[in-house]
Amino acid sequence: MDTGTTSERTASRPRRTQEERRAHTEAALLAAAADLVVEAGVSALTLARVGERAGYSRGIVTHHFGSKQALLEALARSAQAGFVAGLEDVPAGLEHLLRLVAGYVRALAGAGVASRAFLLLWATAPTSPELAPIFAERDERFRADLHADVAQGVADGAVRADVDPHAVAVAVLGQLRGISMQHQLAPESVDTELLGALVADTWRRALETV
């Protein structure tokens, strides 16, 4: 039976560092921002509302992000960080590409609010001056990673020499984003496990050296 006082139990816990407290606060603010986007769209996203939803003041949001634009950029980065797990030890090349596309589709089944917010923001980005540069940069980074996999596959002989890495990167990104939006609109119509395997197999047959 625990007979220690509350103060004794509290004192026994290691105190969080300033960096840990900062990371905790930023995570709470980003989660609140994602909730607001999913509930009411980017127009509902103000620093004051984010602070209120997270239980902080607007001043805290401004202190951590500085502006709504910076908050949106942080939300876009954090929503996709580590979306596909288990790729760290897989070297660049065809197998990395195939695991990425299969893993991406399968991960949609467990996608949380942050990922849903990312897709909603991405879908409206072309007509939004504040969102367009953020998501153009996000897509460019994704295409660069895909391009690197295909180019490495060509270099090591796993991918046909006549394949254009840039064209494949554009096509793969478009496919993944399209599947993501379909899943967002009608998750029951997208079998992520089956589709993940199908997409990977389709790209293997399209790219690999015979």
Rank of each mutant, 00 (worst) to 15 (best):
R58T: 13
G59K: 04
I60G: 00
I60E: 15
V61L: 03
V61R: 00
T62R: 12
H63L: 11
H64D: 10
F65E: 01
F65T: 09
S67V: 07
K68N: 07
K68P: 05
K68L: 12
Q69A: 15
Q69N: 06
Q69M: 02
L72A: 03
L72C: 08
E73R: 15
E73S: 14
A74M: 10
L75F: 07
L75W: 01
A76G: 13
A76D: 10
A76Q: 12
R77L: 14
S78L: 03
S78V: 12
A79D: 10
A81E: 12
G82H: 06
G82L: 06
G82K: 06
F83Y: 06
V84P: 04
A85K: 06
A85Q: 12
G86W: 02
G86P: 02
L87T: 07
L87P: 05
L87F: 04
L87H: 05
E88R: 07
E88M: 00
D89C: 00
V90R: 03
V90A: 03
P91S: 08
P91V: 07
P91D: 10
A92G: 05
G93N: 06
G93P: 09
L94D: 12
L94E: 09
E95T: 13
E95L: 09
L97H: 12
L98Y: 07
R99A: 03
R99T: 00
R99V: 01
R99P: 01
L100Q: 05
L100F: 14
L100G: 14
V101E: 01
A102Q: 14
A102M: 02
V105F: 01
V105W: 00
R106W: 02
R106D: 05
L108D: 03
A109W: 04
A109V: 01
A109C: 02
G110M: 05
G110F: 04
G110T: 06
A111E: 11
A111N: 03
A111R: 13
G112V: 06
V113F: 00
V113H: 06
S115Y: 12
R116Q: 15
R116G: 15
R116F: 05
R116D: 11
A117S: 15
F118H: 15
F118W: 14
F118S: 08
F118A: 13
L120D: 04
L121A: 12
L121K: 04
W122F: 12
P126W: 10
T127C: 09
T127Q: 14
S128D: 15
P129C: 04
E130D: 15
E130F: 02
L131D: 07
A132I: 01
A132K: 13
A132F: 12
P133C: 11
P133H: 08
I134H: 00
F135E: 10
F135S: 09
A136R: 13
A136Q: 13
A136W: 07
R138D: 12
E140D: 15
R141G: 15
R141Y: 05
R141L: 14
R141E: 14
F142K: 08
